[in-house]
Write a protein that binds this DNA or RNA. Sequence first.
DNA 1: AGCACGCCGACT
DNA 2: GTCGGCGTGCTC
Length: 738
Amino acid sequence: MDSHRTSPGLLQLALPLPLPRLFDYRPPAGSSACTGDIGRRVKVPFGKRELVGVVAAINTEQAPVPGLRDALAWLDEAPLLSGELWGSLHWLARYTHAPLGEVLATALPSLLRHGEPLPDTTTWAWQLTAAGRASMETLRTGSRPRQLAEFLTTPRDEDTLAHRFEGWRTPARALMKRGLAERIALPAPRNGDLAEGPILNPEQSAAITALREINGFATVLLDGITGSGKTEVYLQAIADCLKRGRQALVLVPEIGLTPQTLARFRARLGVPIHALHSSLSDTARARVWAAAQRGQARVIVGTRSAVFTPLPEAGLIVIDEEHDTSYKQQDGIRYHARDFALVRGKALDIPVLLGSATPSLESLHNANTGRYQHLRLHQRAGSATPPEVRILDIRKRPLDAGLSPELMAAIRAALDAGGQVLVFKNRRGYAPVLLCHDCGWSAHCPRCSTPEHPSPMTVHSAGRRLQCHHCGYRQPVPPACPDCASLALEPQGNGTERIEELLTTRFADVPVLRIDRSSTRRKDALEQHFAALGERPGILVGTQMLAKGHDLPNLTLACVVGIDEGLFSADFRSREKLAQLLIQVAGRAGRAERAGKVLLQTHHPDHPLLLTLIDGGYHVFAAEELRERAAASFPPFTHLALLRAQGPHAEPPMRFLTAAREHLRTALQNMRGPLHLHGPAPAPMPKRAGLYRAQLLLDAPRRGPLHIALAQVIPALHALPEARRVRWSLDIDPVDLY
DNA sequence: AGCACGCCGACT
DNA sequence: GTCGGCGTGCTC
């Protein structure tokens, strides 16, 4: 009967599904829809379940689909997502070729994704009432209520109370009951008491001056050697941003967000620092998001996913250690937080500051071509001198757990001089391989090996257990060889555990700490390790984790062992990664007044990569590497996209990718601009955790044609019958091709 | 992604 | 005779 009425406006919803389309619903009963509802969440029935959707558009044009259903309820009064963030997330969905609903599900904190209301972010404080001030003396001197009353003569927020007055709640309640104290809502502090920073050196001052001259969007690469005081430049830039009444977002790598860093920010900036790290509860995460959206959070410091924080009053984005690969999400929506931050910075019209001692080749290329401003810091702040780097030729030398006598002597000397020593080895566990000395059998992971590509299991726990580093599979070390029953099973090669074992016996007089993913499971374990060691002489053995983060002022010797595999790896990024790692490890040595020393143990003392790094430094290496990337047409001189597929059998992933290639070929026929397809082929690691993996690589000198072709083909891939038998994903700008 | 429906093997 | 394996299809 109402069929002639004009279209009432339907909700087009982005739902958290891997389906490349929106879903139409009638607005919840008793409400109507308008464009002002875009960005609001609604609860909807979907098949037999309920989902939380976000209004992406209002449909007044198209005829409603048959079987249209009613949305159940609005979840927000005002749009949860709007403005710049909403627009940037649409960009991300287009760029990653992912459904908007999945992108939104990735961007929202889980509580909000699941339909919880935006949490309350009021800062509560306590103060004495007039009655309280008048009758303070009625409280017995020295009693808890009296102590608290004295503390509350100025209003104190609950965070401060928790830190400064243990067990404050009980006396607080007692005071409130008697009408002596009250709980009040505090306005969020927009500007704090900025503490005076240290005196900057001329390069740091020049950087600050350059940053102050920026008006609107610009990308600045702050390229400064370890110890040159990049953090001080960030702090000054953030302080300037706060003074202008704007919010600042700081991204740090996964292990860079230490209590040490936060304390420094807090002490300096004088406003609450809102930290977003992996061990935060869902509630706390949603609260930071909400506080940022309401403009209450002025400084947000977080890891990768913090790049999705709403910034209604944005003034600055800082990305520390911009070369760090933890900024690239490796599953689900494969976004790069640094690149997305640049998109947001542009949309927000604010500067983005990228900092690193070893900038990515992408960023250096952008600096070279003038897209980024390039600020260099060559001087170490304070009196620190750069470390002396030496190559230790270990050809024909006797090795114990992979360590040469010369290295051991250097460690002894450093310890005797009262210093701390770092031994860096890029391999966890006791030994990377377990070998039968009689028949040549070795232990392989049953879930990650194929006949053509066996994947060895690592020996752990001083030789008692086998563990696969790719899928986590564990089993006890067999008592005898499963093939020939020989008892001659021998761990081959060296991992951090074995090195720790050796060093513990050789240097029994000092503590030996192992720092790697196995020894540092708990979140604060790393801090506790460092705190336990203090400034005493001692040895730290570890992997990547040791290369950054904590300041170790008493560390005078850094030893790098077992880098030879990395010198000859096939991956086109391996040299860049190795160079960055070596520079980062070297940067750990000699940060204070004591000169540091770095020893590189290798069988290839003449390797050009090592010589270039030592003689010329990172930037000479990077310039050479960029020339080679240009000659070989690798990124950043070409752009990659990787289509991956995996499944429990080997054939379906290949069949899916073959079908995908044919669709792409067809799309390419009426395209201008070159675009190349490589594959499909089994992935370099063809089986992992029981799943067979294959990939199809696309490369193009220009992004335009690449994205046009993909946008044309992706919807068809979803509909492909072969797609149902595999899990597939598209990775734009993959960081590794495994 | 879920969640149904739908046909073929080892169990109370 | 059923419980349950995962192939196939759909979700406004």
